[in-house]
Each structure stands twice: as C-alpha cells, then as structure tokens.
Design a binder for these strands. Structure first.
Lengths: 335, 335
DNA sequence: AATATTAGAGAAAACGTTTACGTAATTAAA
DNA sequence: TTTAATTACGTAAACGTTTTCTCTAATATT
C-alpha cells in the first residue's frame, strides 16, 4: 500500500496540514520543518494522491479528446499537438474513439463526464445538438478541432477549407492549366467536402473557367481507394484534363497510382495537387505538391485554447490557422 | 454545480446508502424505492463522480500508455487496439509521449502514478532499470508492447523480429535471389535493429549464401530518408544486388524512391521487401510486398493482457503474435 | 516591561462516494 | 399470537487530500 500524507506527517512529527502546506508551496511552517518533511517524503517515496486532490479541488488535470477515427497520420499529428500543450500544463490526455457512432460518442461523453475531465476537444466530426446539450450540462469547456459548428457557440481551430481549396485551384490555374478536375469526398460532408468543392468552383469562376459536372468526381470518402477509382472516372468523364485537385493526399496518391497504371506521367501529362500534407506526401513518386494543414499546431493550439478556457471560464476566440502550399514535384507548368 | 448522491437521496427521501446500493446493483431496497430513485436520477441527470468512487475503491478504470514517438501509422494502430480493449472493459486510456527521453519518461510515470492509473502499457522502447524500479514501487501491472525485456520479468506482446526477418529473407531466397542486401536501422537497437539483422544473416547462412559487410547497410533510424540514402549506399557497395530486405516499410519506400531516380525498375531490376505493413505499403508504386505486423491486434492483446493482470494480480503469459508476408508487387522471381 | 503583531502549527470539516454495522419493519415459522 | 428470520433501510466511518479556523509561541513595537 502506498504511503499517504498521514504516514509522512506521523514520521515527521507534524500534522497533515503542515505537510500539505509544504507540498503546495504555501506559508505557515519553518524552514527546519520543511526540510525535515521533504527529507522524509524523499525517503519514503511518498506520492500525493491525485484522486484525493481532484475530489477536493474539483480539478482532475485531465482532458478528454474524441476522435471519430483512430488511424492515419492526421490523428497522430493532432494528438501530438494536443498532448504537447496538455503536458506543458501538467495535464493528461484521455483519447476516445467514437467511430462516428452516435451511441458510442454519447457513451464516451458520459464516461468523460463521470471522470470529471476538465475539458473536451472534439475533433473532425460534426457537433450534434445531442452532444452539445450533454456537454453544456457537464459544464466543462470544449473546443472543436478540425471542424466547426454553425449553430452552436463553440470555439474552433481549423484551417479555412474554402480558402485552401481556392488556393490550390488557383495554384493550378497560375501554372497555366485550364482543364482542371477535382476528385472530392462527399459533398454532404460539411467540413471536408462541401467547402472544398465550393472553393474549387469559386476559383474557376473567378478566373473565367467554366465549370460543369465533368469537372468534378464525388466519392464516398477520402481514402486511397477513393482516389484510385475517382481518377478512373475523371479520366473517363474529362479526357482532356491536365490538372487535378484531390481533396486529400491519400486520394491524390490514389489518383497517381491510376495514372501510373494508364501510363500517364505525373506531372508531364497531368499535374496533381493534394490536400493535407501528411507524411506520405513526400514519399510518393513523384513527391506530392499539396496544401499543407498544420495539424500539429492545430492540435497544440486547440490544447492551449482549452486550457485557457479552463482558466478564464469564458469562450476563447476561434482560430483559423494558415494553410500553405508545399511545392514538390507533382505539378508542372502547362506549356 | 453538478448533483451529488446527496441531492438524489434528499429528493427521493432515502439515505445516500440506499442510492449507492441501487446504483451498484446490490441488494437491500424495495422495488418501489428503486424505481423512485431511478426516476429522480434520470430527471436530475445525476452522474456519479468517478473521482470519489476511485478514492474509495482504489480503482480509477484508467490505464496509461507510453509512446516514445507519436507519429506514424504504427502508433495509431497500436492505440486503436489498446483503446478497443480498454473501452470494452469500461476503462479509459491516457496517452503519454516520452520522445524516448529518460527524464520525460520518468515525469510521465510520476504523473501516471499520482493519477493512480490501474495499469501501464509501455511501447516500443527499452525498459530501463530506473523505469522498472519505479513501476514496481507504483505496484501496478505493466505490459510491454512491441518490445520486450531480457532482464525484467514483464509480460510482453510482440512479433518475433528474428523470425519475421528470417521469413522475409527466405522469401527472397525462395524467389531465386542470391545477391541480397539489407537496409537496416541501428544495430544497437535491441528491438527493431539487432534481431532483424540476425534473422537476415541466419536465413542467408541456412541457405548457403555468404554474408559480409557488403550485404548490409546500417542507418541511424527507420524513416523514409534513411531508406533513401541507405539505398544509395547499397547500390554503391553491392552493385550486383537483386533483392533487398528493408527493416521498415518507410525505408523500403525510400529505397524505391532512390531506385526510381536511378532508373532502376522495381521489381524488374531489383526486388524489395519491407517490414510492418503500414497503410502506405499498399499505396506505393509498385505496391509493397512486406512483412505484416498485426499492430491493431497487438494493441488489443496488450490491452486485454493488462486488464487480465489487473484482475488476477499475477503475471500473464507473454504473447508472440504471428507475422505474415503480404505479397504485393515489389518482389519478383529471379529468372 | 507590557502590549500588539506575526509566524508556526494543529484540529476538524469538507469533497462524493462505498460499506460495515445497527435497527425497525415486515414476513415466515412455531 | 409469539418468536425467529428476513428485508429494507439509515448512520457513520473511511478513502487521502485541502483549507478554514483557532491557538500558542515568538518577535516587534511602544
């Protein structure tokens, strides 16, 4: 059985109050007793019980993070940032994997609530009324990461998908391309789907390039396979395409895979730009030009924001982090 | 302020003991009171405080996981498995990112100890005496994941790296290759370095293929870049090489990258086999033949093992999970 | 030297549960 | 009916802290 503050107090011939004060850097003891107590603590290897502390302080120094999926480079980067921020502040991070399932999500929220976490980071998923109401009752701060809510007043950290898609498209246009296609995820996805499609459209429009259904193929998801087959459709529906904007790096690499199979050279025949800049982007052949999302910083920023909200007890300002275009070898000037 | 059991008790006109008994499925109350109490709980939205429970039960239903690095597909897969096992058991997972730093690791252990986690999973890193002693004093079960210890009696879950490397090499040999190189991580790495090198050597030896320094290039790490430059060295030191075993998928893909730059066709000119089977293995051109490590199951297995140890209070049996070879397109029969 | 102030310390309540023990009310056995 | 056994609760201690009082002893002020 681990030692308690009582054991320390007894061994040092002082009261537990004094030990507590010494431990918490308060006043009310002489240097001599401090030294003695500290020595005894060292000797016994006493460790304060954070559970007991949490009970009385109503602070657990723990935050909960909800991920809809627990795979992919994106997740680790976000998590790394969050963990960094939390740990700098002496807090721990509990991860939950909701699988985008309503019931599971509620179950996790329930669990986090019972564990009395100090705050919640909700990532990459749309915030429903049910979740929101629950968290409101929990009465802990929450921040959205890599997602946002139009209807609930919750601070978020993300990049502007519309803007980023616009930039990517414009980048292709500035390279002289006019026959540009997009391989997208579902347009019902209000976070990674719709906004990027809109950004793509707007960029074409602003540069007097006509847009119709042929310019875009919409797939069910954002994975490699979707990109692979998406490219097939694209080649079919728009054979004159010279540049493609893929809504994720995985899709871009899938598209490159198909291109390769068809003997189409990237970037000589077709240029491709991705989205995310996950680690594999630099490992493809050719290395992928892409829109960078600063995932690690996003995570870190969300972490700091949450910590800040925990302290100030009011809503923080949402943060839109800057995307940027990482130029590698998959896009080439149209001549 | 959230409701407590006292509020429930008062509203239901019973004692807190009765509420507690009802909540914990014990006996000692009438059906009528049970119904009333449950109704009130529902109505108030009362949530038991897991902190207070933890204090008295000495169980937090939380496990701590230590990762040396928090990036790469490997981590998410392991974590996914761990989370799955834990959540099936009603436990939560705290992740820590040690960066392979001794001081940080100790800091995290300290934190986990103060938080009174029920158990610890220690991943992908060598267990030092200092860590071990500390955890022994913490007096919680621990399992090693994707690593093992020769000196301390700690159950582990991993694949047999020696065996797996042997299989990979033998696979190349069976495809008719005799001029085989290995691109390895550091031979001082007792987990992912040395054993794989030994497996490689043994396979060559068992098939009467001579081995010398030319057959292997040793790099500082296991990342893409190491593979890229490793391949450069290999080509230089053993120009007649026809097949390569890379100690990680990232390295294999790095090697393929260099091959591509040199106009060397994989697999026509040189065959390459990787190690890990992370998601990018299926996305490369050509798709990578590789040794699969079942990361998700490893994580899950470790999770269950830990939970089991928490219950039985004795050491579980270590588990060696089966690797397998995933055949894709990067290895070709030597003709 | 007498008084006022301050430093050093302990006692005890509080945080929200679980649980051992005791007791009143109900049911079963005689 | 009377007694025995059981059921349905309530009381209070315990878990390991922090913190508010309170008190004594030491120091500072006049």
């Amino acid at each position: 059985m681990a030692y308690t503050i009582k054991d320390v107090a007894k061994a040092a011939n002082v009261s537990i109050a004094t030990v507590s004060r010494i431990l918490n850097g308060q006043t009310g003891y002489s240097l001599k007793t401090k030294k003695k107590v500290l020595e005894i603590i060292e000797e016994m290897g006493y460790q304060p019980n954070a559970i007991a502390r949490g009970l009385i302080n109503k602070k657990t120094h723990t935050i909960g993070v909800l991920f809809p999926f627990l795979s992919g480079a994106l997740v680790t980067e976000l998590l790394r940032g969050i963990e960094k921020a939390a740990s700098a502040h002496g807090s721990s991070v509990i991860v939950s994997h909701t699988e985008s399932d309503e019931e599971k999500t509620m179950k996790y929220l329930q669990l986090l609530s019972e564990k009395r976490v100090d705050g919640i980071i909700f990532t990459s998923e749309v915030m429903t009324k049910q979740y929101y109401e629950f968290i409101k009752i929990m009465n802990v701060p929450i921040v959205l990461l890599s997602t946002k809510s139009e209807v609930f007043p919750i601070p978020y950290v993300k990049v502007d998908d519309f803007e980023a898609a616009y930039s990517a498209t414009e980048y292709l246009i500035k390279k002289g391309h006019t026959e540009i296609g997009m391989i997208s995820g579902p347009d019902t996805d209000m976070i990674a789907g719709k906004p990027r499609i809109e950004g793509f459209k707007k960029a074409l429009q602003d540069h007097q390039i006509s847009f119709d259904d042929k310019n875009i193929v919409i797939r069910e998801g954002f994975m490699f396979t979707e990109g692979k087959f998406g490219m097939l459709s694209m080649l079919d529906q728009k054979p004159d395409v010279t540049a493609i904007f893929a809504a994720s790096d995985e899709m871009a690499i899938g598209a490159m895979f198909t291109a390769y199979q068809f003997g189409i050279n990237v970037p000589d025949d077709i240029s491709i730009i991705g989205y995310d800049n996950i680690n594999i982007a630099s490992m493809s052949i050719p290395p992928l030009t892409t829109v960078q999302q600063p995932f690690m910083e996003m995570g870190e920023s969300a972490g700091h924001m949450l910590l800040e909200m925990m302290e100030t007890d009011q809503l923080s300002e949402s943060r839109i982090l800057k995307h940027s275009i990482v130029e590698r070898k998959s896009v080439k000037e149209k001549i």
